[in-house]
Amino acid sequence: KVTYHVPNEEFARKLYKKAVDANLNVEIRVENGQFIIHIE
């Protein structure tokens, strides 16, 4: 399980798409202006 803290929405979207394309379980949320992405 990996967690990324991404300040940039564009990068967060790319990361999310890559994980989904790889059939990984992804959860994304915004906290204090940062995008928190959990990948399992």
Rank of each mutant, 00 (worst) to 15 (best):
K14Q: 11
I36P: 00
E27Y: 13
N32R: 06
R13V: 04
H38E: 15
L15R: 02
R13H: 05
I36T: 07
V2P: 04
V2N: 05
N32G: 09
I36V: 10
E9I: 12
Q34E: 10
V2I: 11
I36D: 01
T3G: 03
N32A: 07
V20E: 04
K17Y: 07
I39N: 00
V6F: 12
R13P: 01
N8F: 13
I37S: 00
I36E: 03
T3S: 08
K17G: 04
D21N: 07
L24H: 02
G33E: 03
V20R: 10
I28M: 12
F35Y: 11
N8P: 05
P7N: 14
H5M: 13
A12I: 08
F11T: 13
E9F: 11
A22S: 07
I39V: 07
A19H: 04
T3F: 09
K17I: 10
I37W: 02
N32Q: 05
R29K: 09
E27T: 14
N25C: 11
H38G: 03
A19M: 13
D21T: 08
N25K: 14
Y16T: 01
V30M: 11
Y4D: 02
F11V: 13
N23A: 07
I37V: 11
A19D: 02
E9L: 11
R29M: 08
N32W: 10
R13E: 04
N32K: 06
H38W: 11
R13Y: 11
F35E: 00
A19E: 02
N23W: 15
V30C: 11
V6K: 04
P7L: 14
R13S: 03
E40P: 04
N32I: 09
N8S: 09
A22L: 13
E31M: 09
I28P: 00
Q34W: 15
F35G: 00
H5S: 09
R29L: 10
G33I: 07
Q34G: 08
V6E: 03
V2T: 07
A22G: 06
N25R: 14
Y4A: 03
H5K: 12
K1G: 14
I37A: 01
N8Y: 09
L24M: 06
P7Y: 15
N32D: 08
A12H: 02
H5D: 03
Y4T: 03
K17E: 07
D21V: 08
V20Y: 07
H5G: 04
E9N: 04
K17L: 09
A19F: 15
F35N: 00
A12P: 02
K1F: 13
E27G: 04
H38P: 00
E31R: 08
V2D: 04
L24G: 01
E10G: 05
I37K: 00
K17P: 01
A22D: 04
H5N: 08
E9T: 04
L24R: 03
L15Y: 04
N8W: 13
T3M: 08
I36S: 05
A12G: 02
L15P: 02
G33R: 03
Y4H: 04
P7Q: 14
R13G: 02
H5V: 14
I39P: 00
V26H: 00
N8R: 02
R29Q: 07
F35M: 03
V2S: 06
V6H: 04
E10Y: 09
E31G: 05
Y4F: 11
G33W: 14
I28R: 00
I39W: 04
K1Q: 08
A22F: 12
H5I: 15
P7S: 14
V20M: 11
E9C: 15
E10L: 06
V26C: 03
L15H: 02
I36K: 03
N32H: 08
E31T: 07
D21K: 10
N8G: 06
F11D: 13
N25I: 13
P7I: 14
L24S: 01
R29N: 05
E40C: 12
I36H: 03
K14P: 01
E27C: 11
H38M: 14
A12D: 01
A22H: 07
E10F: 08
G33V: 08
F11N: 05
N25T: 11
K1A: 10
Y4I: 13
L24Y: 07
F35S: 00
L24A: 02
V2A: 06
L15K: 02
K17A: 10
E40S: 14
E31W: 11
E40A: 09
A12F: 10
F35V: 05
F11I: 14
A12R: 05
Y4M: 07
H5A: 10
A19K: 02
V30I: 12
K18L: 14
V20W: 06
H5C: 15
Q34Y: 13
F35H: 01
K18G: 05
G33Y: 07
H38Q: 13
D21P: 04
L15G: 01
I36F: 10
A19I: 10
A12N: 02
V30R: 07
L24Q: 02
E31K: 06
K14D: 07
F11Q: 13
Y16D: 00
V30L: 08
K18Y: 13
D21M: 12
K14M: 13
V2Q: 08
E27R: 09
E9M: 09
V26E: 00
N23Y: 14
D21H: 08
N8T: 08
R29E: 06
V26Q: 00
N32P: 03
E9S: 04
E9V: 08
K1R: 12
P7R: 14
V30E: 10
P7H: 13
E10V: 05
I39S: 01
P7A: 14
Q34F: 14
P7E: 14
A19L: 15
I28V: 06
K17H: 05
I36A: 03
V2G: 07
R29C: 13
N32C: 14
A12M: 09
